[in-house]
Simulated scan of single mutants.
Amino acid sequence: MPSLTLDQCRQIIAVAFEKGAALKLKPLSVVVLDAGGHLKAFERQDGASNLRYQIANGKAYGALAVGMGSRGLFKRAQEQAYFVQALNGLANGAVVPVPGGVLIKDSAGEIIGAVGVTGDTSDNDEICAVAAIESVGFTADPG
Rank of each mutant, 00 (worst) to 15 (best):
S70R: 05
I111T: 15
A132S: 15
V66Q: 12
Q8W: 02
V32D: 05
A94P: 00
Q85I: 05
R52T: 15
G101T: 07
Q78P: 00
N92H: 07
N92C: 08
G47S: 11
K105Q: 14
L25V: 07
D46Q: 13
Q54H: 06
Q54T: 10
G20V: 07
I104L: 12
R44H: 03
K40Y: 00
G113Q: 10
A140Q: 09
Q54P: 00
A35C: 05
A86V: 04
V96F: 09
Y53D: 08
A14G: 02
Y82E: 15
L90Q: 14
R76T: 15
A16L: 07
G116E: 11
D125E: 06
L4R: 07
G109D: 08
V98K: 02
Q85N: 14
V15A: 05
R10Q: 14
G101W: 04
G20L: 11
E110V: 09
G67H: 03
C9H: 03
G101I: 06
K40E: 13
I55Y: 05
V84H: 04
D120S: 15
L73C: 08
M68D: 10
T5K: 11
G119W: 04
Q8M: 11
N124H: 12
T139L: 12
F83H: 01
L90N: 09
V117S: 12
D123V: 13
I13W: 02
V15W: 02
L28T: 11
A41C: 02
K24I: 04
A14V: 00
A86L: 08
S49F: 12
G93P: 07
I111N: 06
S135Q: 02
Y53W: 07
A129W: 00
G69E: 07
I133P: 02
P27I: 08
